[in-house]
Nucleic acid binder design. Structure first.
Lengths: 341, 341
DNA sequence: CCGCGCCATGTAATCGGTTTCATACCAGTC
DNA sequence: GACTGGTATGAAACCGATTACATGGCGCGG
């Protein structure tokens, strides 16, 4: 059994007794060839196990055959479900999902990604990228996902960050809290800003006013949640509840508070944001705002495909979030049977 | 400002006053052109913001410019760090990482992935795929990662599953346990088999013998861990420790045991496998076997690149694992200050 | 019976690079 | 001064598909 070269369209044409044009037509648009021709071409395709050369097709069609997702840290599980949604949506259109971790290679490597021949579209999940990277005329359509880059004009698909934060406040208010603090993310981050707006909206709706010394800031890491706990404990006048800008910080905060003998939610109720897998396994389980990540990924692809096809695209698509009440606000008894949910 | 077409190599050549061949040489092999020519070509490249068309280059070079990773479920965070390692290693060679979720598209879509023109290599992380998919002569080099497909001959990069399981047993033995049970994965899974071998090796080394009724089976899900707990509790003669084939099952098992009033590790010590992020946040934190996932990803790429370059490749590369002792075997006090680690 | 139009198909241009082969030039050697 | 060898470069083939354009045949209306 000799090592055979892959069949080319010429081989198929010869075997089927037609021209290469007819083979191509049969495969991409079967209806326009006659029944008989179609049969013999398909037979030849099967016999030769022909499969079109992707590079040749892409060259002629002036396309790349794939979409590139730029994420700040692939190892972060927050992204994996978004990527899964993207992969799912792209598979329907037979487009590849190419992923790149923006922390490797530096901008010298990144700049070449903004190239029509490399990707038919860009899904940007990292707000720290320089908008200038995508300014060239060769840059394919872009959709920003979750985070937003100031100064980069493109459609965005984001979670309802404001609505989610407002819902968290409303939930606490409903439980009787009036002394509500906030552990925010970095001030220049778009997520922080939207969640900030939602927090204030929620407070206003309840007739409450935020207090300056109850506004803590972190950097989305567990460690920063831990250090925020120390600042919280040092306050002369402690809040009865705190809304955190993500689950990691909430987790760090909770574990530090618990170690200091604080009861959650008895002394302080805690709410997070994102609903990462971890949240339902903490002790106590963490009340948080769920982002439908798979759906966000799918929707981002949907918008990108629209843009690639030249259709009108919503400048901003907002995906609703839902509050998931758990023990960190409700207490252990109320939910003991749902610990697994 | 009119919408300009991207510059082609011809344009660069004209501006620099040389042929396209010289431009191509200047960019891919600068040393073989004269100093003067190089300068004028590079100036023209900069002026036109020229960037080579990827499809054209790939077509001529008979390559794909990327490597495809096939994973069973992208949303599973276990894979994300492996993918991050792959992405990192591929970036050095300027190869794309294309990811595909094997649960979408079915095998009709999958079969076309095994094509040299689509990917320069395949990284297979899913052992449930049909080896026949990769039997064609057009199939690019393959490396199997973590899991192994029986009947698919190719290099493999796997964690030291046997060694890890043996280390878990040794750890329990050292703590004085002699009555050690096992919660295994699906019997036909390659991970289960290797961990099984390691478990027996560890037991043998300690002069212990496994008991048939202490061998439970699950499917790697938390739910199956939960149902295993019921079977464990129903045993007339309970073990003092149990080694689980992954962390998810260990997690489900622990939460069900705790709800039944069992103390961990007082009544039963529990060990897992994988060291997923969750493990260090459970209560009690879970003793488990850490797999260096990023390194596994990097190593898999290294082997694949060797295979692509036609070099000799180890048929099997085993990456060492390390046991991470935590509260579920040591008790809470012993490690209370390390809860964060 | 002519001519129009449609349908199925073939011919050949085209996509944009890389690389082989040929050539011109120059320095060094006898 | 002819010859050799090496270096820098250009002309053109080539990668393998898709598709614009051309063509031939056939049915049908006038």
């Amino acid at each position: 059994m000799r090592q055979e070269r892959a069949a080319r369209i010429k081989d198929v044409a010869r075997i089927a007794g037609v021209s290469t044009a007819t083979v191509s037509r049969t495969l991409s648009n079967p209806d326009i060839v006659s029944e008989e021709t179609r049969r013999s071409v398909l037979a030849a395709v099967k016999a030769t196990r022909y499969s079109a050369n992707v590079a040749a097709r892409n060259l002629r069609r002036q396309q790349a055959g794939g979409v590139l997702a730029l994420a700040p840290n692939l190892a972060n599980p927050f992204f994996s479900e978004i990527l899964a949604g993207m992969s799912e949506a792209l598979a329907e259109r037979r487009l590849n999902l190419i992923v790149a971790d923006t922390q490797f290679g530096g901008s010298s490597q990144l700049v070449q990604y903004a190239d029509r021949s490399r990707a038919d579209g860009l899904l940007i999940l990292d707000s720290r990228l320089d908008p200038a990277l995508f300014a060239g005329a060769q840059c394919p359509p872009i959709v920003q996902v979750c985070e937003e880059i100031e100064g980069l004009q493109s459609p965005r698909v984001v979670a309802d960050n404001a609505g989610g934060a407002a819902a968290a406040v409303a939930h606490l208010v409903e439980l009787g809290h009036t002394r509500i603090a906030r552990l925010a993310g970095p001030p220049d981050n778009s997520l922080t800003r939207w969640r900030d707006a939602g927090f204030r909206r929620g407070m206003d709706a309840a007739g409450l006013s935020g207090r300056g010394d109850w506004h803590l800031t972190g950097d989305f890491s567990m460690e920063s949640g831990r250090t925020a706990a120390a600042r919280l404990l040092a306050l002369p006048d402690r809040p009865s509840a705190i809304v955190c800008d993500n689950d990691e910080m909430a987790c760090g905060l909770m574990s530090a508070l618990i170690r200091s003998g604080i009861d959650i939610p008895g002394d302080i109720a805690v709410a997070g944001f994102d609903d990462i897998e971890l949240s339902r396994h903490l002790t106590p389980t963490l009340t948080t705002v769920h982002q439908p990540r798979r759906r966000i990924g799918r929707e981002a692809v949907r918008q990108l495909l629209l843009a690639i096809d030249g259709a009108d695209v919503a400048e901003r698509t907002v995906i609703p979030c839902t509050l998931v009440p758990r023990q960190s606000t409700l207490g252990r008894e109320a939910l003991s049977d749902q610990a697994a949910s």
